[in-house]
Amino acid sequence: MNALTTRRTALKLGLASAAGLAVSGLLRAQTSAPVPGVIPPQLIRLATPLPANEVHVFPDAYRLFWSLPDGQAWIYAIRVGRDGLYEPGEYYVGAKKEWPSWTPTPGMIEREPEKYEKYADGGMPGGPGNPLGARALYLFTPERGDTFLRIHGTDDPASIGRAVSNGCAGLINDQITQLYNQVPMDARVVLHPKRLD
């Protein structure tokens, strides 16, 4: 266990099947802060191990796991997509970018033209204030290619622990930088279904 661990807290997540996947059991995390919210990334031992070297997003708990061998995982606090925009399923990391540029999707422009239409043609260059933050993992599927879903950074810590994005999972910038360095290209990513109302 890592040195940040000061007390034992059971984090119980009901795992469900998504895109033909079935994973069940309880995950126990060593944490030093209540959930949800921003906590430092922590190395935990899983009561039910996940396959190693995969990203698993549990939207109801606002947590992302980067699984390791021997039943361990790094756990990160995240924000997730708003209702109707979160897409559970199985993906892979098809691209990785540092300080990525950002262009809103056609769906984003249609939903909120007053907010996004000004970026439709040229987008926004990478850097502080960019919605994708310091790093981004681009989620692909074999059938669709780039899904326009991202695991990315944010400079808005108040959004962590909330369903506020346009479908993507977000971590604060220093934590996405750590995750980015851990996760290789082609890594499997599972966005588990939402279970709570």
Rank of each mutant, 00 (worst) to 15 (best):
R144Q: 15
G129Q: 07
P131L: 09
Y180I: 10
G84Q: 09
Y180N: 09
G153Y: 11
A136Q: 03
N130D: 11
V183S: 05
A169F: 02
S165N: 04
A187E: 03
L179F: 05
V164M: 15
E90W: 01
A163L: 00
G153P: 08
R111H: 09
I176P: 01
T147C: 04
T154F: 08
A95N: 13
P113T: 11
W102R: 07
V190F: 03
D186H: 14
E87M: 04
K96E: 01
R82E: 15
R135V: 03
G81V: 00
T154C: 07
Y92W: 12
A187T: 14
E112F: 14
E117V: 15
E114H: 12
N181D: 13
K115C: 05
E112N: 15
S101M: 04
G107C: 05
Y91L: 00
T154Q: 10
L171C: 10
Y91D: 00
P131C: 07
Q175D: 15
M185Y: 11
P184A: 04
R144C: 07
V183L: 05
H152P: 02
G129T: 10
V164T: 15
Y91C: 00
K115R: 15
Y86T: 01
R111E: 15
T154H: 06
A120H: 08
N166G: 13
K97I: 10
G84H: 11
A134F: 02
P113R: 11
N130E: 07
T154N: 06
R162L: 15
E143N: 05
G123W: 07
G161Q: 06
A136C: 08
P125D: 14
G167M: 08
R150K: 07
T105R: 01
Q182T: 04
G170R: 15
F140S: 08
L139C: 01
E98Q: 12
P142D: 15
G123I: 09
Y138W: 06
I172H: 03
A134T: 13
K96Q: 11
R150D: 00
D186K: 13
A187H: 05
L179N: 05
Y91T: 00
K96I: 01
R150T: 01
P128S: 14
S165H: 06
G123S: 12
P113C: 09
P113Q: 08
V164I: 15
T147V: 11
I172K: 01
N166Y: 14
P128W: 08
S165C: 03
N181H: 12
M124F: 09
G145A: 06
M185E: 10
P125A: 14
D146L: 04
P125M: 12
L132P: 02
R162Y: 11
I151G: 01
R144W: 08
G84R: 13
G81C: 03
N181G: 14
L149G: 02
E114C: 06
L139T: 02
P184C: 09
E114N: 13
P88Y: 13
G81W: 00
F148E: 09
G94D: 02
R111N: 12
G122K: 14
D174P: 13
C168Q: 02
D156W: 06
N166M: 12
T103W: 06
Y92S: 04
Q178A: 13
Q182H: 09
L149M: 06
W102D: 08
P104T: 10
Q178N: 11
